[in-house]
C-alpha cells in the first residue's frame, strides 16, 4: 500500500475534526484541500513509498485503550506530585539527569516512550543516545536513580511496547 493512500484517508478526517463539521461534504472538501496541500510536496513526504502496515494494528486496539487509561492515570498523578512541590513552603528538591536504557526499537515506539516519560510524575526526557538505546531523563527527585529506571521499565514501557510494537 502506498503512503499516498494512507495520507488521503487520514487528511479528510483531520479536516473534519479541525473544522468541526463531520459531514460527507466536509470530508470531500478535506480530501480536495489535502490533495492541494500535499501533492506539491510528494517527494518531501515520500508519498510514492510503499509501506506495509502491520496486520495486527486492529488487534492491538484494546492494548492501545489500556495504554491511554494508564497515561491519563499517570498524568493526574504527575499533576498532584507537581502541585505538592509547588505549594510546599520551602522548595526542597534534588534534581538530576539519569540515563535510562530502553527496549523499544522502532521509531514510533521510542517516540511513544519518550512522550510518556515526559507526561509522567517527576520525569522529563532530555535527549537520546546515538545508538537509540539510552534515554537521558531529567528527574525532579534523583536520590534513587535505580528506582526510577525500574519504575519506567515496569510501569510504562511495558504498555508502550504492547500497544505500539
Amino acid at each position: 500500500m502506498k503512503r499516498r493512500l494512507i495520507t488521503y484517508m487520514a487528511l479528510p478526517v483531520v479536516w473534519c475534526l479541525v473544522s468541526g463539521y463531520v459531514t460527507i461534504g466536509s470530508l470531500f472538501l478535506g480530501l480536495i484541500f489535502g490533495m492541494i496541500v500535499v501533492e506539491p510536496f510528494s517527494k518531501l513526504y515520500r508519498l510514492d513509498e510503499v509501506v506495509h502496515p502491520t496486520g495486527d494494528w486492529l488487534a492491538k486496539i484494546p492494548k492501545k485503550i489500556k495504554y491511554f487509561y494508564v497515561l491519563i492515570k499517570e498524568i493526574i498523578k504527575a499533576n498532584i506530585v507537581v502541585a505538592k512541590i509547588v505549594l510546599s513552603p520551602t522548595i526542597n528538591i534534588k534534581p538530576g539527569i539519569i540515563a535510562v536504557p530502553i527496549r523499544a526499537k522502532t521509531n514510533i515506539g521510542i517516540t511513544g516512550i519518550a512522550n510518556t516519560i515526559t507526561l509522567t510524575p517527576g520525569t522529563l526526557t532530555v535527549d537520546i543516545s546515538d545508538d537509540q538505546s539510552i534515554l537521558y531523563v531529567h528527574s525532579i527527585d534523583a536520590t534513587n536513580p535505580q528506582g526510577i529506571r525500574d519504575s519506567i521499565r515496569d510501569d510504562l514501557e511495558k504498555y508502550v511496547l504492547e500497544a505500539f510494537e
Binding site: 498524568i75 493526574i76 504527575a78 499533576n79 507537581v82 502541585a83 512541590i85 509547588v86 505549594l87 522548595i91 528538591i93 534534581p95 515526559t118 507526561l119 510524575p121 517527576g122 522529563l124 532530555v126 531529567h138 525532579i140
Partner: peptide, 26 residues
Amino acid sequence: SLGMIGLLRLPDVYNRLHATTKVGTL
C-alpha cells in the same frame, strides 16, 4: 495557576519545564 506559580518558584529551566508541561496538559 499552579503551573504558573511553579514557573516562578522552581529554580532552573529543567525544573520549570516539569511544572509547565505536566500541569499545562491537565
